[in-house]
């Protein structure tokens, strides 16, 4: 299997009022195409920090992250934005969608940033909305969607740009158990049928149970990495 992400000796140190916090403390890790990996660990263990660095949202102190052969620390901040747009799909815990755009427009938005034609956009969004089961809500604004529906739109939006992988930081944290199960079903299905790579962090045991690989962090270090 092709390696998409390769992380070597990664450190991230925060200095906050003379207190040094090693949020990520020497992590080496790689992900292959088609993975369905959960990053787990107690609060403050460094899950968000690690995901943000992989996603190029935050700079690291030491080490390297190579994505698809590109050392992302070499990219200028302008290049990094374009890199994110074309290579990484993001699903956040909240505030994923632009409230003034409809579900469909939200998903389309990212393809418009990529200058995709209207026809291409329409086709892809239709297909993706079908896949995440949100087609009938396409013309509704996020304010009128449930949390679970919003997250499904966010997944569709993340996929719309045809990224190499999707990063999701606690995508189910705000969802009830039914919505959590539904979202996981959809992600898992996309992973198995379309070979989409998902890397997500979670606290939730039910989510961990559905993962194919579980990486456990504690105090910024990997304490276990199991493939089921």
């Amino acid at each position: 299997m092709k390696k998409v992400i390769e992380i070597k000796d990664l450190f991230k140190t925060y200095v906050d009022a003379d207190i040094i916090v090693k949020a990520v403390n020497g992590v080496s890790l790689s992900f292959e195409e088609g993975e369905f990996a959960a990053i787990v660990g107690p609060s403050g263990s460094g899950k968000t920090t690690l995901l943000n660095m992989i996603g190029g949202l935050d700079k690291y102190t030491e080490g390297s992250i190579i994505i698809d052969g590109i050392d992302i620390s070499q990219l200028s901040s302008k290049q990094m934005i374009d890199f994110r747009l074309n290579n990484i799909g993001f699903v956040f815990q909240a505030y994923n969608l632009i409230p003034v755009l409809t579900a469909k427009e939200n998903a389309e938005f990212i393809m418009q940033l990529q200058h995709k034609s209207k026809k291409e956009r329409q086709e892809r969004i239709m297909e993706l909305f079908e896949a995440v089961g949100i087609s009938e809500k396409a013309n509704v604004r996020p304010g009128k969607l449930s949390g679970g529906q919003q997250q499904r739109v966010a997944v569709a939006r993340a996929l719309a740009s045809k990224p190499k992988f999707i990063l999701a930081d606690e995508p189910t944290a705000n969802l009830d158990s039914k919505s959590t199960a539904d979202l996981l079903d959809i992600m898992r299905k996309l992973n198995e049928e379309e070979n989409i790579t998902f890397i997500f962090s979670t606290h939730d045991q039910r989510v961990i149970d559905r993962a194919k690989r579980v990486i456990t962090l504690e105090d910024g270090k990997i304490i276990s990495d199991e493939v089921k």
């Binding site: 934005i81 374009d82 994110r84 747009l85 074309n86 993001f90 956040f92 990212i110 940033l113």
Partner: peptide, 16 residues
Amino acid sequence: KKELGMIMAIGMNRRK
């Protein structure tokens, strides 16, 4: 603030 951060995170450049 959060919305703008999200937009920039997913890939809207500064000019836009």
